[in-house]
Nucleic acid binder design. Structure first.
Lengths: 335, 335
DNA sequence: ATGAAAGCGCTAACAT
DNA sequence: ATGTTAGCGCTTTCAT
């Protein structure tokens, strides 16, 4: 059996309370006492029992991160960022993966009751604002993603419209005028797709470039195959364009491959920009220009805001937008 | 305050022990009693307190997964696989990321004492068999990776030599004879690089193809840039070859880009095969042939073996090799 | 088949 | 500055 506080107390000749004080860095302890206790702890190789501490304190020191699966590089990188941010607050992260089915998503949220985390960061995959009342976790919650705005909890978000607008402007500045919008979702207004399309249109309008519905391509999901398929369809249709604003990097990479296969040059014939700044954009051929959505900052802020709530902050839900930036690479290079 | 077992017991008119029995599916309970307790649980929306359960039972229901960071797709996919496998045993996974520094790795292992997981799956990044005694965790341990064989704990591993041999044979079967080995580590015998090089040599030997040291390229790490750099150097050196056995997919993808840039066709001029079967091999241009190292199986077996140990199995450490397979894609297609 | 009671190891009141 | 004491909510003997 591993040693307990009692063992340490006995060896150091103090009470268990004093050991607890030393372990928890309670300030008012005589230096000599502290030393004695430290020595005893070292000698016994004592480690506080977490379960006991959790039971007594009512806290687990862990937060849950509910999000789409780690195979998606964007979310793998987000998870990494969240774990690093959480570590700075001394928190452990429990990852719960969403598979894409609505039912499973509700199930997962419900299952959080058992998990006993002190807070939840939830990157919404399928639910809407209408489902918000079903998101009933017994601890503080921070929402990520672009499906629920002005919901029941703090929300840290990407500047979708602004980012897409900047991406579009990036191409316009390089003299491109026929810009394909790749990745729209039929009829969507909110959500990343709707917002990014909105940003695209805003940029066109601001530049006095007429909006052409033929240049908006709709896709089902935002994976590489979807970008490739959509691009194949566009090329087959004979649509002419000299730039592509892809709504995420995977779409852009998929589309780029089809363009290259079709004998078009990137960026000479077609410039292309993505969105997300996932690692592989640095390694594609050509390297992909993109929007850095401030993922690390999102993670930092999400944890920060969550910790505030865990510490009892009571104020109306907040909407927090992370700063973004344009990352110019080969796929939109000039000359 | 959320309801406790006492509340449920009171409402159901039974003792707390009976509630516990129902919650834990203890078999000998009268059906009517069980129903009454179930109803009380539902009415109060009772959820067992995990901290209390952990304290009393001495188990946390969690395992730690210690591994390189999630930004590396291979490990993101491994983490996903491990989490799924663990979920089937009702276990939660705590991920601990390694940053690449030896010191941090030892630190992380030491920190596990506080974590209070019931077991550890550790994908070794920097340590060697010589460091094995420093890997002193107080719970069952399963090792992954190719740095420590016949160490102090069960080990689930990729068939490195056999996989690399199969990859090499795959190219030989397609008539390639001048095969570049991409990714060797100077002087390494064990470890993935050493083992894969060994498999490469075995295949050559079996086919009666002479080994040419000029065709072995050494790299520092196994990232895409390293593959690109090595390939640039080889091309500059004027070495001729018609096939590449890359020791992982990232190296292959980086090298492929340089080949294409240099005006060589893949697979017509140079066929190339990777190792790992990460998702992006399905989307590169051309798609990349590779070795599927049986990652999902590794995760399954690792969790299984760990659970056996957690349940008290005492037997000498075991070495378990997962089955692998050759995945043929465009980069090694014939005709 | 169910109940009574002890106690896992710690923290937080309260006392001194 | 340090000690005493009472639980946190559950599982586990041990009874019955």
């Amino acid at each position: 059996m591993s040693p307990t506080m009692h063992d340490v107390a006995r060896l150091a000749g103090v009470s268990i309370k004093t050991v607890s004080n030393v372990v928890n860095d309670y300030p008012h302890i005589r230096e000599s006492t502290r030393e004695r206790v430290r020595a005893a702890i070292a000698e016994l190789d004592y480690v506080p029992n977490k379960a006991a501490r959790n039971l007594r304190s009512g806290r687990s020191g862990a937060i849950s991160l509910v999000m789409p699966d780690l195979r998606n590089p964007y979310f793998a990188e987000l998870a990494d960022d969240v774990m690093r941010a959480a570590a700075e607050h001394g928190l452990t992260v429990l990852i719960e993966q969403l598979t894409g089915e609505r039912e499973q998503e509700l199930q997962t949220l419900h299952g959080l009751r058992q998990r006993a985390a002190d807070g939840v960061i939830y990157s919404v995959l399928n639910l809407d604002l209408e489902d918000a009342d079903q998101i009933d976790v017994p601890v503080p919650l921070v929402l990520l993603g672009d499906r629920i705005f002005h919901g029941p909890a703090d929300h840290v978000t990407i500047q979708n419209a602004e980012g897409a607008k900047a991406a579009t402007e990036h191409l316009l500045e390089r003299g491109r005028r026929r810009l394909l919008a790749l990745g729209a979702h039929e009829g969507e207004v909110l959500g990343s797709a709707g917002l990014r399309l909105h940003g695209y249109r805003e940029a066109l309008e601001a530049a006095g470039v007429p909006f052409d519905p033929d240049l908006v391509t709709h896709v089902g999901r935002w994976h590489r195959v979807d970008g490739a398929e959509a691009m194949r369809e566009v090329v087959a249709r004979g649509v002419t364009f000299d730039g592509v604003v892809a709504f995420n990097d995977s779409l852009a990479l998929g589309a780029m491959r089809v363009l290259l296969d079709a004998g078009l040059r990137v960026p000479e014939d077609v410039a292309i920009i993505g969105f997300d700044d996932v690692d592989e954009t640095r390694y594609s051929q050509p390297t992909l220009s993109t929007i850095d959505p401030g993922r690390a900052e999102i993670a930092r802020r999400a944890v920060e805001v969550l910790v505030e709530r865990m510490n009892g902050l009571a104020s109306p839900p907040r909407e927090i937008a992370a700063p973004f930036s344009v990352v110019a690479r080969e796929s939109t290079a000039t000359g």
